[in-house]
Nucleic acid binder design. Structure first.
Lengths: 365, 365
DNA sequence: TTGAAAGCGCTAACAG
DNA sequence: CTGTTAGCGCTTTCAA
């Protein structure tokens, strides 16, 4: 059984204990393929092969290796595997925020979709800071990810250059949460925020309102919310309606929505219809309206965005715009798989990559 | 300028274009330290040194290297760095769910806390499946993380063994979201769920109620919610109150809370006080109660868990149990830093690691 | 302050 | 079916 073919396995070729012994050399001290190979009386190549293509190894040898694997408590070292094999099984994902339900549903679906192929998620949150995004792109690229998923289409020039470079180097890049036919360069999975703003304005206009407010997010770099607001205002003005775009105070979103409504009442500046950057401020305002005895929609129509669970729970329901965040994540996962394993994963149809927002008309409009 | 000291840099020693050229050899095709070294007329060692300890390199050389770095578009290869240097800058985090606000707030705070030290987050979601957790622990360990953060104290024996082994191999392990003085082995940051259940029951009892319902989560492996429910029932029974533990239907949480309330009304089985596995079903039930004209708290007292933003927004407020999810994440980050960089990061006081849940009494009780 | 040598753990390519 | 050789890109150690 004794063998000295392998170059100095950390565990020693003749280790006796069933618990893996650890000796501190230069390495991590864990069992390596060399340790396993020594135990099984084969070379590391055979162990490596067994691990990746067991059918190429004879049954006998396989049994010995299995036993050795077991008794050494071998854990592969993916860094070494990556270095030698240039396949990293890491998918890097950069989103503005982890805590916001906006992105967490998508990330969850993405994670679930990648799980079967044993791709792991390297996740970073920019907190809507473009500088930080740039740093994070740089940082995750150092891990040679199999794919890189980023949020939105606007970023610093340097960040864009990094993405282009990465793509040129063979790292698939997917942009999510935004879809702009004119923005080329990377695969996009998302929806058009201008279109959403237009949709929202047209919905309220079609209900007969001509005094509108759009309550925008006050996060400076939530450009997508601003884009919806701008489109909303443009359409409203075109229809000769009165329209104001307000910024919410920088509070927790529901509290911010509540505060906006209270402010408008205090100033006797109430509009007849309000649209919000998301369902959460809309819900806060809805609850404030209820507390104040304002009849919705008779005195005030309200329209949210996102179709979060809360929207269907408020009284007769909060009207909103639905974008399927979860399926966005699922489609993103499919797209990533299609790019990483083109032979074994079906491509995603171009038309699937554009998520269709739609008005969900409930009791609040 | 021409040099052939370095072993065959991918980019070639004399590349002219400002954009880094790429030729496919065995490697990734990206510029490596060898590429940079060749451009700067030094060895890779000097480049490596410059990158990690610039002050050890002469100003002249530093300038040359900086220029070469720039012109080659060098991106480090962290796998190679890890393999040679045994430092991975990856922190692995395994949570039951990414989408649930329960964990996403904590993960966000953890991510923010690790950001300054340039540690990146490898995130996995178990979806409350113990088998999947075991796989994921195995998978992330292959990346030799600097630290491993797991959720809760209950897992498969194999998973526990993996964690113990990892810790023995020098990987710091932190358990979050649970705190049990008897559960040794790993650092814990969290709170005691039994204590929370007791707290909830005592609060309702102290309001004079003797007919209680606990609405439990129906996710089979959300053991922590069950633990709260069991403690709740025990305390209630001890006080000779009537107490029922109900499972919510498997719906979206707010909808599930609404459904439970409707069911109880339909069966004419309404209690006088209800406690919920979280604020979301509580909020759903609160809204249903409001729709049904049930006076809260006069006819029905309601108590949530988690102190999510919605709790403070409902009418006179939903009473709840506050546990600071964000500070849990922040403290976890500090703990990880203290374990990864013991010389430069202050230790976390033991007493800080136990998060104190407290009743937030609002208008619903 | 800089360099040479060796090796981290693994896999591609080629032999046998 | 199994082994040999070489090398992925970086850092450690030691020497100059």
């Amino acid at each position: 059984m004794k063998s000295s073919r392998s170059p100095d396995p950390p565990d020693g070729a003749g280790a006796q204990s069933s618990a893996p012994a650890r000796t501190r050399g230069r390495g991590l001290g864990r069992a390596t393929q060399a340790t396993v190979a020594a135990r099984a009386g084969v070379t590391t190549m055979t162990v490596s092969r067994f691990l990746r293509a067991p059918q190429q190894v004879s049954a006998e040898t396989a049994d010995k290796i299995r036993a050795a694997l077991e008794s050494t408590g071998y854990t592969p070292n993916k860094h070494a595997g990556m270095l030698a094999g240039r396949r990293s099984s890491i998918v890097a994902v950069i989103v503005p925020s982890i805590a916001s339900s906006t992105f967490s549903g998508t990330v969850q679906a993405l994670s679930d979709g990648l799980q079967p192929r044993e791709l792991e998620l390297l996740l970073a949150a920019t907190n809507y800071d473009p500088q930080r995004e740039e740093q994070q792109i740089r940082a995750v690229l150092a891990w040679s990810p199999s794919a890189l998923v980023v949020t939105g289409r606007t970023r610093t020039p340097a960040a864009s250059a990094l993405l282009r470079q990465a793509q040129a180097d063979g790292v698939p890049v997917v942009q999510i949460w935004d879809f702009d036919a004119r923005a080329g360069g990377f695969v996009q999975i998302g929806f058009n925020h201008t279109r959403v703003g237009e949709l929202m304005a047209r919905h309220l206009l079609s209900c007969g309102h001509d005094d509108l407010v759009y309550v925008d997010n006050s996060v400076p770099h939530d450009l997508r919310a601003h884009e919806r607001g701008k489109a909303f205002a443009r359409v409203a003005r075109k229809a000769r309606a009165r329209v104001r775009v307000l910024n919410m105070p920088r509070l927790e979103p529901m509290a911010a929505g509540r505060a906006v409504l209270q402010q408008l009442r205090a100033e006797a500046a109430m509009p007849r219809a309000m649209a919000f950057a998301s369902d959460f401020p809309a819900a806060g305002a809805w609850l404030a309206a209820q507390d104040a005895g304002i009849a919705v929609p008779a005195q005030l129509a309200m329209l949210g965005f996102g179709d979060y669970p809360i929207a269907s729970q408020l009284g007769a329901g909060l009207s909103t715009v639905s974008v399927d965040r979860q399926s966005l994540g699922t489609i993103c996962a499919q797209q990533v798989l299609a790019m990483v394993y083109p032979e074994s994963s079906p491509p995603v149809a171009a038309q699937q990559r554009e998520i269709r927002p739609r008005i969900v008309a409930r009791g609040s409009t």
